[in-house]
């Protein structure tokens, strides 16, 4: 009988990561929890207020509106970017000179810093000097993202689709490239339609990467701040004031650390819950399909 040897050295390898996470995430989060039950007027002097900030927040119409807008933005983003990303990945060449050209073109928007993307689209959409805004105005469309909430929303959504669909494309393309040629040959022999190939070969093989893509896009879009801040600043009115923008206004603009901390915690809990639900549902779908395929 062979004695099972266990090597505990891995714990020491994990220790630096643990310390970094503690320093950069756990301790700040603890501080936020401490702030959320207190009020301060500066000089590190705090007054206990209990759950008052949470009560105010939960009954605040401003918070409800920001939360709904954030949820709607993430929903629209996912509904557009995921199918579009899959379609582009399916259309991309699998060999030849077109592969590097497509990959580099797809990767380019991902390399641009978020504030630069915001600035590009802010100028691009302007009616006086922007190519998009000026062209739409010339064609007779009443487009002005600084005055019209719908135009502001459309600009933000198109900007996000332009910036981040590439991520979904690249992940899906990696999933598609991992499918052995034999699968396609078998489908051809069986006379499978294009839709059947997609439904029973390509989609199941992309499921893992799609899970990552959906999670990443959901988390990023639910926490989006820089681009809408640069393009619309939360306006016109409060039409694009998402939770992140509202939170920054509260914490830095108004210096209401207590209410801002309470809002941060609720924001954090919602993200945690939705990510857990997404991850659990998607990974179970993946396991069921792989078990079914065995």
């Amino acid at each position: 009988m062979i004695a099972k040897q266990t090597n505990q050295k891995a714990w020491f390898m994990v220790l630096p990561v643990f310390l970094v996470v503690a320093f950069s995430a756990v301790i700040p989060l603890m501080t936020v929890v401490n702030y959320s039950v207190q009020d301060t007027f500066g000089n590190n002097v705090f007054t206990w207020v209990g759950m008052d900030w949470f009560k105010d927040l939960i009954h605040s119409e401003r918070f409800h509106a920001a939360f709904l807008k954030q949820l709607m933005f993430s929903g629209i983003i996912l509904l557009i970017e995921v199918p579009l990303g899959i379609m582009i990945a399916l259309a991309m060449p699998k060999k030849g000179w077109g592969v590097p050209v497509c990959l580099i073109s797809m990767a380019l928007p991902l390399l641009i810093p978020w504030n630069v993307v915001g600035t590009i689209w802010q100028i691009f959409g302007r009616v006086d000097i922007g190519l998009l805004g000026h062209s739409l105005a010339s064609l007779g469309f009443d487009y002005n993202y600084t005055q019209d909430p719908i135009a502001a929303w459309i600009t933000l959504i198109i900007m996000d689709v332009w910036h981040w669909t590439s991520l979904v494309v690249l992940l899906c393309y990696a999933g598609l490239c991992s499918i052995p040629e034999a699968y396609y040959q078998a489908a051809k022999i069986d006379g499978a339609s294009r839709w059947s190939v997609f439904r029973y070969i390509q989609l199941p093989k992309m499921q893992r990467v799609l899970l990552i893509a959906i999670l990443l896009r959901f988390m990023d879009s639910f926490m989006i701040y820089t681009e809408p801040f640069v393009i619309t600043g939360g306006g016109p009115g409060n039409s694009t004031t998402f939770m992140s923008i509202d939170l920054v206004k509260l914490a830095i603009g108004q210096f209401d650390l207590g209410p801002a901390a309470a809002m941060s915690l609720v924001y954090f809990l919602v993200i945690l819950l939705l990510c857990w639900v997404f991850y659990t549902v998607m990974s179970n779908i993946g396991e069921e399909s792989s078990n079914g395929g065995k």
Binding site: I27, M30, T31, V33, N34, Y35, V37, Q38, T40, N44, F46, W48
Partner: peptide
Amino acid sequence: FNWMAWTAPTASFFG
């Protein structure tokens, strides 16, 4: 650790 604004209830919570 004053900057972390600790209170007895939050310390018990994390404890």
